[in-house]
Design a protein around this nucleic acid. Structure first.
Length: 865
DNA sequence: GCGGATCAC
DNA sequence: TATGGTGATCCGC
């Protein structure tokens, strides 16, 4: 369907931001923009929703104000320097511009509404929308004349257009139609990328090559007559196809402006390639150009589904997406794969049209005088000083008409969530019950995909539309409703307690699970299990650890090849930082990834700088039977473990535990700080500069000496990047079962940071005759599920720690019940314990001191390959 | 790792 | 009467 984005704008932006970009030409039947806004405003003013919108708007305005202040402090010298750096980068980008791919973006027109109209002729001439009285998914073009858009609540739509028919959504049907469309798309690119039920990207480069040699027969399609095999209902419209191919699909867009699809001229470009499909008596032959291919695709979609699609053809995804919007509905547009064609297209393109530039970004950039891509390019130096590296790189790409030139397969899922809106719920019991239901739903969904994760997040929205999320990460993966609820419940409890005696007045609750083990993690785990069972001989290096003589050092990200995109780098860095934390578990003697528990003990104790007793006669707890082995030699202990291997209750051994260093910072984005002193330049005035100044600077050319300073700058930058990944070493001084564990975090930058925490080994499992007793609260646990039990202990422990912290005590959290056998497997360190935030109320809003750089969202991935 | 924001669909 | 659900990413802590 048409981009929700645009529809959102016309509704909300006009309402709140007065952008004045609504190009809605009022038809005789529809409403003009003023009337639409008036009605919307009347319906919305005074509502809690509107109040929250105003609040958010204020926050955005504050961000803009901060940004403008920061801009005012920029010296022309700084700007010049930035200009050099940015232009250097721009030059590299220009050199790597790739026009060799043909990317197509297919977008079904008003998809849900179109399906409903197709299947119910009664709706054909009427304004309709799909959704409910609270929210619309899409509307047909007829309804749009009245200002009825997607993401608009139905009750407001009804005020705009009282005749509006709101059809409840029928997703199964949409999925079925979507499948039909996708079958067609697969013929042109088996690896096409579906973005939703109604949108997809294709890379038809290969198809085009092959197609050049195709005989006419292979490009020939017979036109369906009214009595189709696939559709029961006769469609006289289809017959028109034989009269003129381009007049197809009046069904949906009987009301679309006639000039949108001038017969015989769907495309404004590459006229030289135009050879209209030859229309034979009952068939049509398509040519071999990209444009013809896309016509063929759209023709086949319409023949098969009686629905129309719009399409964009361009050398990259970003442009293709914009193109598909250009001749909507039921049209297509191509940007020829020539640099000049791209630049001409980009020139006056409003940045808001680009996927990833949303309402807020648009407003921030507008404050800098940037509306079109040309202006975005002209201000590139300024942007590099005001925004994060991620952001200004993204902006630069857009302003140069660059984007992803190939489609990547969907990566692994990162989270799964369930959330629900309801009429106010204020009673705690009801809230817990709801939470439990959500957890059950989530668990079911998780099970379908066989997912387990370590982070549970709850989301709460109060009746004033203020949203907050609270998360907790546990040491081993969870997946069942009970496990998730055990964690979610505590998060919810904290929030309820925080507002006591006032109830939480909720209108939405959600539960999300994330931190799924990556494929790599799973492999490690696999290996560990195999190694464990086979008593293999893997070394620590298998997990990526380098053994050093003095202290354990972690691998840093290797130098990334220049060819890798910025985002590849970021991804790699993230992976690495993840591995860092992952490795901590190993180094800390948890040994879950390594082959043999006894070997791990040996290795770690050798690496540890144990200040006290030698490792020869320590008290060990067998990781298999969990029994304390008293003060014996390592050799004896290992023999015991050998003997025990094959016994039960080892499953818990394989879960991943880790200690994360809060000291590890990931991203250094800014190329250099604004306050930084500039060295090389001489006698530069420090005057405030304006946008106009920037424009003038655009054309400055690097002289050799300046280039040198840029080099120095980039060197510095790369150093900064490295220092942003400090090697943090963990030095465990003492780590016995059943006792407190002193972890010393040493950071090269910050010197030595010492933290004393009471960490409990995991796999608590206090078993007395099949009854599990929590070592923290000492209460018998009803469950016999070990994971669930451990979740309970995690939570119990967390609570205990929090309470202790609040009381400012340093004592260990719990003393194990004397009667119970000791717990613990080989002193595994539990999760990092963090104190949950307790914000007083939801109305709290943090005032950003620094400019919050814009964050271009997830489509960056698509954008940059 | 957490929480707030932004964005897409 | 009344303004959604899911997933992802970024940024500053």
């Amino acid at each position: 369907m048409d981009s929700t984005k645009e529809k959102n704008d016309n509704y909300k932006d006009d309402l709140l931001l007065r952008m004045g970009l609504n190009d809605n030409k009022a038809g005789m039947e529809g409403l003009d923009k003023e009337k639409i806004n008036k009605i919307i405003m009347e319906a919305t003013k005074g509502s809690r929703f509107y109040g929250n919108e105003l609040k958010k708007e204020k926050q955005v305005n504050q961000r803009i104000e901060n940004m403008m202040q920061q801009k005012a402090q920029i010296t022309s010298q700084q700007l010049r320097k930035a200009q050099l750096q940015v232009d250097r980068f721009a030059m590299e980008l220009e050199q790597s511009r790739d026009l060799n791919n043909t990317i197509v973006h297919i977008d079904m027109d008003a998809f849900y509404a179109a399906v409903e109209m197709r299947d119910n002729p009664e709706l054909k001439d009427k304004p309709i929308a799909v959704g409910s009285s609270s929210m619309l998914s899409t509307s047909n073009y007829h309804a749009r004349r009245f200002g009825v858009r997607a993401a608009m609540p139905g009750f407001i739509a009804k005020r705009l257009c009282p005749q509006l028919i709101i059809v409840p959504p029928n997703f199964d049907k949409y999925r079925a139609v979507s499948k039909e469309v996708k079958e067609i798309l697969a013929d042109y690119d088996p690896n096409f990328m579906a973005m939703s039920l109604d949108e997809a990207y294709l890379n038809i480069t290969k198809h085009l090559q092959e197609r050049q040699n195709w005989p006419e027969d292979k490009r020939k399609y017979f036109i369906k007559t009214g009595h189709s095999l696939e559709n029961d209902k006769p469609r006289k419209e289809v017959n028109k196809l034989s009269e003129h191919e381009r007049s197809i699909s009046p069904l949906l867009f009987e009301d679309s402006p006639p000039d949108l699809q001038p017969p015989g001229n769907t495309s404004q470009v590459n006229v030289e390639e135009q050879n209209n499909p030859q229309i034979l008596q009952n068939s049509v032959v398509f040519g071999t150009s990209a444009e013809e291919v896309v016509k063929e695709i759209r023709f086949r979609i319409e023949q098969k589904t009686t629905l129309t699609a719009s399409a964009g053809i361009a050398p990259n995804t970003m442009l293709a997406k914009v193109c598909s919007d250009k001749n909507k509905p039921n049209g297509q547009y191509q940007i020829l794969p020539k640099r000049q064609a791209v630049m001409d297209f980009i020139k006056d393109l409003p940045i808001r049209k680009v996927s990833g530039i949303g309402k807020v970004t648009e407003k921030m950039l507008k404050a800098l005088g940037i509306i079109t891509c040309t202006e975005l390019y002209q201000q590139r130096a300024l942007l590099s000083l005001l925004f994060s590296e991620t952001s200004w790189h993204y902006f630069l790409h857009i302003s140069m008409g660059l984007g992803s030139t190939h489609l990547t397969r969907d990566g692994e899922r990162k989270s799964m969530s369930v959330e629900r809106t309801f009429s106010e719920i204020s009673k705690a019991e009801e809230q817990y019950k709801l939470c439990q239901e959500l957890c059950s739903e989530l668990a079911q969904d998780l099970q379908k995909e066989g997912l387990k994760g370590r982070t549970v997040t709850i989301k709460l929205k109060n009746v004033n539309f203020e949203v907050k999320t609270r998360a907790s990460t546990v040491s081993s993966v969870v997946s069942t409703a009970e496990e998730i609820f055990a964690i979610a419940k505590e998060l919810l409890r904290t929030e309820i307690d925080a507002d006591f005696p006032h109830p939480l007045r909720l209108r939405l609750m959600g539960v999300r699970l994330s931190s799924f083990p990556s494929e790599e993690d799973k492999k490690h785990q696999q290996r560990s299990i195999v190694g464990f069972l086979q008593a293999g001989n893997q070394t620590l290096s298998a997990t990526g650890c380098i053994e050093k003589t003095d202290k354990d050092q972690f691998l840093k990200p290797v130098e990334m090849s220049h060819k890798k995109s910025f985002f590849d780098k970021k991804r790699s860095e993230r992976k690495w930082s993840h591995q860092d934390t992952f490795k901590c578990g190993t180094v800390n003697g948890q040994g879950v990834q390594t082959s043999q528990p006894f070997q791990v003990l040996k290795t770690t104790s050798a690496n540890l700088e144990t200040s006290e007793s030698s490792s020869n006669n320590q008290t060990f707890t067998c990781p298999v039977c969990f029994r304390e082995q008293g003060s014996i030699s390592l050799e004896t202990f290992n023999k015991h473990v050998d003997a025990c291997l094959g016994g039960p209750s080892v499953s818990e051994m394989f879960s991943c535990s880790h200690v994360s260093s809060t000291e590890v910072k990931e991203n250094v984005h800014r190329s250099f700080s604004l306050g930084e002193k500039q060295d090389s330049e001489t006698h530069q005035e420090n005057t405030e500069i304006t946008s106009e100044d920037c424009v003038e600077l655009v054309e400055t050319v690097c002289n050799p000496s300046e280039t040198e300073s840029v080099d120095a700058l980039s060197n510095k930058l790369s150093k900064e990047e490295h220092s942003s990944l400090p090697s943090t070493s963990f030095n465990i001084e003492r780590c016995h079962q059943n006792s407190s564990c002193t972890v010393s975090l040493q950071n090269e930058d910050s010197g030595s940071l010492r933290r004393q925490e009471t960490l409990q080994p995991r796999s608590y499992e206090v078993i007395t005759d099949q009854v599990l007793i929590c070592p923290v609260c000492n209460l018998e646990q009803k469950t016999s599920d070990l994971t669930l039990f451990n979740v309970h202990v995690d939570i119990c422990l967390n609570k205990g720690i929090i309470q202790e912290l609040e009381k400012d005590k340093v004592n260990p959290v719990y003393q194990p019940k004397e009667s119970t056998k000791s717990t613990g497997n080989s002193g595994r360190v539990q999760k990092t314990i963090t104190k949950p935030k307790r914000s007083g109320s939801m109305t709290k809003s943090s005032t950003a001191k620094k400019i919050k750089p814009n964050n271009p969202r997830n489509t960056l991935d698509i954008f940059f390959k």
